[in-house]
């Protein structure tokens, strides 16, 4: 007999002469007993399902909390980026506005030479500003899937001379030496020339920024991978290096590994994330090895015949996003 029923019967304290012997009474208590057992079963089922859904809710809550933390961190990184960007844009703007006011207000007191030098500085600060604005635009293009590859046949050796010309003043700034190392038999490639160029300059100027009185080397090498022609591009420096915890973040947009410790280095924090995205679009990859205070090596592996499939895959993704 069910516990509750037994307790209730005991509380009624029925005398010996009354109902318990009657058939009807027995049927009645059996019915009540069965109902109580049914209640117990229902309760058990309800409790089980509550337990399960509360477990699910806890799980879900944990996931939500994690997602919200991630969103907050991303938001914080974006705010930090905007403040940082404002700082970066104001620096060349200060020179542009300052030098042009200098000429406007003082042209009577200035020699022609000084006016021309000031104009050259306005011009070069304007170009610096353009680089910064282009970086922001590049990221916006990549994020909205609008970055396209312009493939053409060219020889990588031809662009090395240009790379050298641009790199030497970059590298000289912190009294570093610069070497380019490549194999003789580098064939023609079918790639996006401008983007390959952009990637190399980006990595070299990064290396130059974080290295002082050291060495920076760019090396090119043919590699075999999946049967097709690939090229490995390495930029090695002997600079300040990247710690393990910073390493996780270096390819994320808006994040500068050295931002908090080294505010003086400046930059938009977009360079490496743009480089990585361009590598992805080309069907290649980028990796980094580094030792703190010893230096870093960035290795790019790129297919020299950029696969048309990569391109269509990418443009399909692009239309998806646009819809």
């Amino acid at each position: 007999m069910h516990r509750t029923l037994a307790r209730q019967l005991k509380r009624l304290d029925l005398g010996a002469e009354s109902a318990p012997d009657s058939v009807q009474w027995k049927r009645f208590t059996r019915l009540v007993d069965g109902t109580y057992k049914g209640f117990d079963q229902d309760r058990y089922l309800l409790e089980r399902s509550l337990e399960i859904s509360s477990k699910e809710l806890t799980e879900l809550n944990k996931e939500l909390r994690k997602a919200s933390e991630q969103a907050n961190a991303a938001n914080e990184a974006k705010s930090q980026f905007l403040a940082n960007m404002s700082h970066e844009l104001r620096t060349p703007l200060n020179a542009i506005i300052g030098f042009s006011e200098l000429i406007m207000e003082e042209y009577r007191n200035l020699e022609t030479n000084e006016i021309i030098t000031s104009l050259e500085r306005i011009h070069s600060s304007g170009n610096h500003l353009l680089v910064l604005i282009n970086e922001i635009l590049d990221l916006a293009k990549i994020e909205s899937g609008k970055m396209e590859l312009n493939l053409e046949t060219f020889n990588l050796k031809d662009i090395l001379l240009e790379i050298e010309g641009i790199s030497i003043p970059l590298v000289d700034k912190n009294h570093n030496t610069f070497k380019i190392h490549y194999e003789n038999e580098i064939d023609n490639v079918f790639m996006d020339k401008l983007k390959v160029f952009q990637i190399m300059i980006n990595l070299i100027s990064n290396a130059a920024k974080f290295t002082n009185k050291g060495e920076i080397e760019l090396s090119l090498e043919k590699i075999e991978k999946k049967g097709a022609g690939w090229i490995s591009l390495k930029v090695t420096d002997t600079g300040i290096g990247i710690s393990k915890s910073q390493m996780k973040k270096i390819f994320s947009p808006f994040v500068q590994a050295h931002y908090s410790e080294h505010k003086e280095y400046g930059g938009t924090g977009l360079g490496l994330s743009i480089v990585k995205k361009i590598c992805d679009i080309m069907g290649g990859s980028i990796t980094c090895k580094s030792k703190l205070n010893r230096g870093s090596t960035f290795t790019l592996e790129l297919p020299t015949m950029v696969n048309r499939r990569e391109k269509t895959l990418f443009s399909r993704r692009k239309t998806d996003k646009l819809d």
């Binding site: 620096t91 020179a95 300052g98 200098l102 000031s118 500085r121």
Partner: peptide, 10 residues
């Protein structure tokens, strides 16, 4: 450098 030169000249 540019900002230093600009300001000192002015």
């Amino acid at each position: 450098e540019f900002n230093r030169i600009m300001l000192s000249r002015r």
